[in-house]
């Protein structure tokens, strides 16, 4: 993969960001910064706004208020949760991974010999040698996740967003995927990962943002994942309250 010139600067900055559905905020007044080349985990219970936040960073959701700013010119790779992919579609592993070439070749650019080599190299790098022509509907959950990581590899992006990449994946695969994530960080890329396994986060992710529809804590992982903070995150009510008072602008911290 190509080397990435990186200044020690901010990759993603959220200022007083509120994102939601209808009049309900799924992420409420969040201010936080991810510096370039950092590796961060997004942690929180189900419904705490993790996927919403990562979709907002990916530019797929529009903020209700505040802003989410990404350093200009930053290329971006986003790996959604598996459930959004149509596994019955007639495609081979190679076709799925080749989608990542969109970042360089776009709609009409021809896929050249070196592009095919990069796809083959990515498939090999995630440990799927010999799977090039396998139909995607015949892959196990872990194999599919490896193929999707190969696609991220091919995208060669500076900012990498992974939404629950370790779900339903065995330990060996998690180990391999985490090694890839560290390799990406070593290359100067910014990586943000939604994760549930707190032990894994403590061991592998230097920074953590703990969410419960509003930010509970942000910073060094061991300072964030304290039992106090986790208790506060659990106590916040998940459900939307249709009679909740409107959030007044002057309440904003």
């Amino acid at each position: 993969m190509t080397g990435l010139p990186f200044n020690p600067r901010t990759a993603v900055e959220m200022r007083d960001l509120t994102v939601g559905y209808g009049s309900h905020a799924a992420v409420h007044h969040l201010s936080c910064c991810f510096s370039a080349g950092s590796l961060s985990a997004l942690v929180g219970v189900n419904g705490s706004g993790k996927s919403t936040l990562i979709k907002t960073i990916a530019g797929l959701l529009r903020p209700m208020s505040g802003r989410c700013h990404i350093a200009p010119g930053t290329s971006l790779a986003y790996l959604p949760q598996q459930s959004e992919l149509d596994r019955s579609f007639p495609a081979r592993v190679r076709d799925l991974v080749s989608l990542g070439l969109w970042s360089q070749r776009g709609l009409l650019g021809r896929h050249r010999a070196q592009d095919r080599d990069r796809v083959a190299a990515a498939i090999s790098a995630v440990g799927l040698d010999g799977f090039d022509t396998r139909p995607i509907d015949s892959l196990s959950g872990g194999q599919l996740q490896r193929a999707l990581f190969a696609r991220v590899l091919v995208q060669d992006a500076q900012l990498i967003l992974l939404d629950e990449p370790f779900n339903a994946v065995d330990e060996r695969t998690i180990g391999d995927l985490v090694a890839l994530i560290h390799r990406w960080q070593g290359q100067g890329r910014t990586v943000i990962v939604v994760a549930h396994d707190l032990d894994l986060v403590r061991a592998q992710f230097p920074q953590t943002l703990l969410l419960a529809r509003r930010p509970i804590a942000w910073g060094a992982t061991l300072d964030v994942l304290t039992s106090d903070n986790l208790q506060r995150a659990r106590n916040l009510h998940e459900a939307w309250d249709d009679h909740a008072p409107w959030c007044a602008p002057d309440e904003v911290a």
Binding site: A58, G59, D86
Partner: peptide
């Protein structure tokens, strides 16, 4: 290419 991407993984296409 867009049609294939939209069928296979619409969210991916939207992200790129």
């Amino acid at each position: 290419r867009a049609l294939v991407a939209e069928c296979l993984d619409p969210l991916f296409l939207r992200s790129v």
